[in-house]
Design a protein around this nucleic acid. Structure first.
Lengths: 219, 219
DNA sequence: AAATAAATTTAGATTAGTCTAAAAATAATT
DNA sequence: AATTATTTTTAGACTAATCTAAATTTATTT
């Protein structure tokens, strides 16, 4: 089996590759893992020996098929546990991350498949992120940032980019949650802030920075 | 916080003290932890420094109040997770141990209290073992081995001594489960085997060894 | 294209937990 | 009580993951 630490490196590398779309640097991994570049280099050698990553000295890394599958299965567990915490144990969407970071490393196929079944096979986690299947296959839902839409577009809230508790709490306060309808009433020329109508009821302004972090699709 | 390994040592020491009722030896711990005596000595020093155990070289160990509370909170988590697996995720009582060994180390007060609530505050785990409360207090249910009773005594199945999958599967096959009524019809003079009537329906023989491992109380 | 800056890797230590082999302490036996 | 056996501890070494500091490679600037 792989160690807790190896799993966390694979997950970090997966997310960086997903984000940047290219080979990721030692420093980028070090920052994400809150560790030093020298430690990362040591681990990269190990992950490379185990065929989880493609690694050439000084050239950055990408995941092999084996590494990507392993990363996606950890992400599957993380997201299923988040869903469980919110749906069954009264956690808020801004409280689940740290616990799921621990639970994702529990090793039991039966456990995770039963959790999946218990939740009735959810497609996304509480933040709208897609849940990979048991083989590590991911169906990415088609969504774009709200900031990419225009005046009078009518959208459906699909997820978030920033997952920080403070951002999620802000969305709660504004009543912006998964599945809500968001219609763009106006876009301010000066700062690109948006006036939006949520669920045909509340009308208010959000900054363009906020809009960039809200994922929606056209309704 | 305490490491995964420290927690496992504390749990092992708790169980050995509970079983033997006196200071436990380095070798006994080594055997229970599947490790070597030299490794145990190292860990005992560390646990002693942290005030979890009373330890004098060559004299064996007992738990301090702090150590016992810590052990009981780990046992609380283990037993609540076992109950969750059986009650909510279709695990059998002989399948839960290994997964619960992992889950017991998850660190989140909210998580474990919500699991407790979700299960409607169970008093015992799937094997009839009592679940300590959130402060590490344990109410031991009064039960004795079936082998301590006499002909025509009518008992209620309360738990098991041996927790091995093979023993639990045997009990399943014989339809002996928690809460069943067990009446002693006869005790064979020769080998002390027992003829029992389960739930007023099935009558059959069990060995004295088996009877020693079934915990009951008088109905 | 040479010099400088930035990123990355190597070298050598450190910590937690483990091990083997040897030494020391306790227990059992004659 | 002396000897032998058993248990426990110490000494020194190993692995995984980390670190700092120095060396090396790659990238950027002049």
């Amino acid at each position: 089996m792989n160690s807790y630490t190896e799993e966390n490196y694979l997950k970090a590398i997966y997310k960086l590759v997903e984000q940047d779309g290219e080979a990721v640097s030692t420093n980028a991994i070090a920052e994400k893992m809150n560790t030093k570049a020298a430690s990362v280099t040591d681990m990269l050698k190990k992950l490379s020996d185990k065929k989880f990553i493609n690694y050439q000295k000084y050239q950055g890394v990408t995941l092999t098929a084996k590494g990507e599958k392993t990363a996606l299965i950890i992400i599957r567990k993380h997201r299923l546990w988040e869903m469980f915490l919110v749906e069954k144990l009264n956690f808020k969407w801004d409280e689940v991350h740290d616990v799921a970071e621990q639970l994702e490393h529990i090793n039991s196929d039966k456990l995770i498949e039963q959790i999946d079944k218990f939740l009735n096979f959810p497609k996304t986690d509480p933040h709208g992120d897609p849940i990979p299947d048991a083989n590590g296959k991911l169906l990415t839902p088609k969504s774009k940032p709200l900031s990419a839409f225009n005046v009078s577009d009518n959208c459906l809230m699909m997820g978030v980019v920033d997952h920080s508790p403070s951002f999620l709490q802000y969305l709660d306060k504004m009543n912006i949650t998964l599945g809500n309808e968001i219609k763009i009433k106006d876009i301010v020329e000066f700062d690109k802030s948006l006036q939006i109508i949520v669920n045909k009821k509340q009308t208010f302004f959000i900054s363009n920075d906020v809009a960039k972090n809200i994922l929606v699709k056209t309704k």
